[in-house]
Amino acid sequence: MSAAAARKWRRPPVLIKNDRWRLAIYGGAIVYLILAAASVPVDPARIVVGLDRGWRFVEGFLTPDFISRGNAIWDGLVESLTMTVTSTVVGCLISVPIGIGAARNLAPLPVYLLCRAIITLSRTFQEVIIAIFFVAMFGFGPFAGFLTLSFATIGFLAKLLAEDIEDIDWRQVEAVRATGASWSQVVNYAVQPQVMPRLIGLSLYRLDINFRESAVIGIVGAGGIGATLNTAIDRYEYDSAGAILLLIILIVMAAEYSSSLIRRRLN
C-alpha cells in the first residue's frame, strides 16, 4: 500500500495574489507608519506646562460656575436650540425632494445627477468650514449657524433617504403603478410607506447631531452656545466653560434618549 502524498492546503491570499508584491506593499506600509510616527514632534517641556493648564481646565470642570455668566449661557443655549430646531426642520423639508431626486429608481438621469451633485457638495465640506464661509458671508451670529446646519442636514438626510428608496421592495411599486397611478401617487402610496419610519428616525437622529454641531460651529462665530463657550475659554474662565460643557452633555443625553424612545415606538 503506497501512502498517498499528504495534500497540503493553505488559505489563498485574500487581496494581493503575488508574493513579492504583497511583501513589498505590506512592508512599505509598515515602514511608512514608523517613519510617520517618528516625524510627529513631541515637546516634553510643553507637555509639562500643558498638563498644568489641562489640570486647571479639569478643576474648572469640577467646580462649574453657572451663575456669574448665567445670562450669557442662557442666551447661548436658547440660540443654539433655536438654530437646531429650525435648521433640522428646514433641512428635512428640503432633503425630501432632493432625496427622491437622487434615487436612481425614481428619477430621470439629469435630475438624479443634479441631486447627487447637491448631496456631494454638502457632504464634501465639514460643518466648521461651511460655517466659516457663511459667517464671512452673513456676519457673526445664529443666522450663519442656521444656514450651515440646514445645508449639512440636506447632505446627510437626502443621501440616506435616496439609498433607502433605492432599496425598497419594487413589487409594491409595480402593483401601485399597475392601477394607473401617476408618478406622485406611486411615490405617496408605494414609496413613502416603505421609507417613512426610517426617515423619521433619521430626522430625529439629525436633531441630536445638529445640536452637537451647533456647539462646535459657534466657536467659529456662528452663534449659539459654542460662541459662549469660546468666549469663556478665551477669558480663561474654565469654571463657566465647565458649566457650559455640562449643560451641553445633559442636553445631548436628553435629546438622544428621547429620540431613541420615539424611534423605538415607531417600529
Binding site: 421592495d169 413589487r171 401601485v176 392601477t179 394607473g180 402610496y189 410607506p193 417613512m196
Partner: peptide, 21 residues
Amino acid sequence: LRRVRRRMGMIFQEYALVERL
C-alpha cells in the same frame, strides 16, 4: 397608458400589497 392600466386589474405573486398601509 395610465388610462389603459386602470382598466386592467393585476394580481401578483406574493401579493405585492403595500405592507405598511
